[in-house]
């Protein structure tokens, strides 16, 4: 594999992990989070901090997962108290707060970020393989959760909280589980990213990324794991395949969000479902 292909595959794997984990929170459980990049960043900073201090790779990655998952748990507690639209605004706040906080911390490298992250020792192809393996495990886990009792409970909470409560589903616990699980996976993606680039700055984890991740989820089809994977791959590859798109990336992301919501709120998965239905009936 050329260096270019390995790096595109790595970014793709990371985006798949992020989008699928966000889909667990927002798609399965219906808790719209616009701060997913903050958890990704928390994972990246957690892992980078430990890696720079000299701990081995698994420990550093685990540290990233724990930092992100804990932050996710805290935000999950906020989700218990807030209505859906309040939560969206609060998570936007988390996104800004994270970048604003990291930017001012000298021990996290402030504006300059952390640059002395040691190599993972796997080589660049090894890194990419590790990322892709993690992405595949994430997708498999998401498909599994979707079919499990937990996935059923998530959907019940997402569809109608009050009704879920009436049939004795512990709504609060499931919300916390969804947040912790989704953000821990984002933290793992962050740790992998830190090892992949060996250099992280606060601005890589800003609000725009949170919006892009939400775009992957809704364009793929909120709640559909495979749709979200397809959208994550597509939205990573499009700017790579057509260079001119990169210049207008945000314009296209924004435009796509508007068009998908306006004309096909079910996203790619919804379109596919409609197509299959039509083929079967005709």
């Amino acid at each position: 594999m050329s260096a270019y292909v390995t790096s595109v595959l790595a970014i793709m794997g990371i985006n798949v992990m992020l989008a699928v984990s966000l889909n667990m929170i927002s798609g399965f459980c219906g808790q719209f989070s616009l701060g997913h990049a903050a958890f990704y960043g928390a994972g990246a900073y957690g892992a980078a901090f430990f890696a720079a201090a000299g701990t081995p790779l698994p420990v550093a990655l685990l540290a990233g997962v724990i930092v992100a998952g804990l932050l996710g748990l805290v935000v999950g507690f906020a989700a218990l108290r807030l209505r859906a639209d309040f939560l969206a605004v609060t998570t936007i706040g988390v996104s800004f707060l994270f970048v604003g906080f990291v930017r001012k911390q000298p021990w996290l490298g402030a504006e300059m970020g952390i640059s002395k992250i040691p190599a993972s020792g796997l080589g660049s192809e090894g890194n990419t393989l590790l990322i892709i393996a993690c992405a595949l495990v994430t997708v498999a886990a998401s498909l599994y959760v979707d079919r499990s009792w937990m996935g059923f409970a998530f959907r019940a909470v997402g569809d109608d909280e009050e009704t879920a409560r009436t049939v004795a589903i512990p709504v609060s616990s499931y919300k916390l589980v969804a947040f912790t699980l989704g953000t821990a996976i984002a933290g793992l993606a962050g740790g992998l990213y830190a090892y992949f680039t060996q250099f992280i700055v606060p601005d890589s984890f800003g609000f725009i990324l949170s919006v892009a991740l939400m775009a992957m989820v809704v364009i793929g089809g909120t709640g559909s794991t495979l749709g979200v994977v397809a959208a994550a791959i597509l939205l990573t590859l499009l700017p790579e395949m057509f260079r001119f798109i990169n210049e207008y990336r945000l314009l296209i992301f924004g435009g796509l969000l508007v068009l998908v919501m306006r004309f096909a709120p079910g996203g790619l998965a919804g379109l596919a479902r409609a197509l299959i239905l039509r083929l079967r009936t005709s």
Binding site: I208, A215, G254, V258
Partner: peptide, 16 residues
């Protein structure tokens, strides 16, 4: 959430 996401899309689109 549908109009909200559409609204974010419009903001990003117009700013760019």
């Amino acid at each position: 959430y549908v109009p909200m996401i559409a609204s974010i899309g419009l903001l990003v689109f117009m700013e760019d």
